[in-house]
Structures are given as structure tokens and as C-alpha cells.
């Protein structure tokens, strides 16, 4: 019998290494679908434009009048719950620092069951 030649042992070792790394990769790939999906969902879920729209409407209204018009107030609230399914509420105060320094202060509350958003806004 010829001498044992162990020069090629590294091939087997490499084989082990590759197969183990494949195994771990498979585990990671298995997890990634779940993570990707939930991340994508939360990005879609965030109601950025709804919040912007509502906050914009309220601020515009506040700048013009300085006080809540009852009709507009209820319109904003009813539209947001009917169209966007979000509960919206806001308060508006006119405050006087000096005799001539008047500014509006508003607290905006938004909740659509997934995202709750509060804004504390002061006019210039």
C-alpha cells in the first residue's frame, strides 16, 4: 500500500466551511422576508400626507380668523373621520404678549388607530 497522502484534506475542510455558511445564509434569508414585509407595511401605514393636509388646513384657517369657526371645525373633524378614518381634534387660542403682539396657538391631535400625532403650533 502506498503512503497515505493527506495533501488534499483542505478540500474537505473547505467543503464543510461552505456548507455551514450556506446553512447560516439560508437561516438569514428565511428571516428576511418577514422583516422586509413588516418594514414595508409600516412605511405604507404612516399617514404622512393625511397629517400634512389636516395640519395645513387647520393652520391656514387659524391664520385667517384667529378663532375657531364652529362650522369649519366640525367639517374638518367629520371629513377626517369619514374619508381617512382618523380622529382629529384641535384647539385654537389667541394670545397677547404685549398690546400689539398677537399670535395664535394651536394644539392638533390626530389618531388613526396606528399612528397618533400631536402638534403644538404657534403662529409668528
Amino acid at each position: 500500500m502506498a503512503r497515505l497522502n493527506d495533501d488534499a484534506q483542505w478540500i474537505i475542510l473547505m467543503g464543510f466551511l461552505v456548507s455551514f455558511s450556506l446553512f447560516f445564509l439560508a437561516l438569514i434569508i428565511n428571516q428576511s422576508t418577514v422583516v422586509g414585509q413588516s418594514t414595508a407595511e409600516s412605511v405604507i401605514e404612516f399617514p404622512k400626507n393625511d397629517i400634512r393636509d389636516i395640519s395645513h388646513v387647520i393652520k391656514e384657517h387659524a391664520e385667517k380668523n384667529g378663532k375657531i369657526d364652529d362650522r369649519v371645525y366640525h367639517d374638518i373633524i367629520n371629513l377626517s373621520i369619514q374619508r381617512e378614518g382618523a380622529v382629529v381634534n384641535y384647539t385654537l387660542n389667541t394670545q397677547y404678549y404685549q398690546r400689539l403682539d398677537v399670535f395664535n396657538h394651536s394644539l392638533i391631535h390626530y389618531n388613526n388607530g396606528v399612528t397618533t400625532y400631536s402638534e403644538n403650533w404657534t403662529s409668528e
Partner: peptide
């Protein structure tokens, strides 16, 4: 997606 908003005491 059912939710209760405590601030306005609204149940949706």
C-alpha cells in the same frame, strides 16, 4: 383596526 381615542373619548 379598531381603536379608542382617549383624548376625544371616541371609539372607532
Amino acid at each position: 383596526r379598531w381603536f379608542y381615542d382617549a383624548q376625544t373619548n371616541t371609539m372607532v
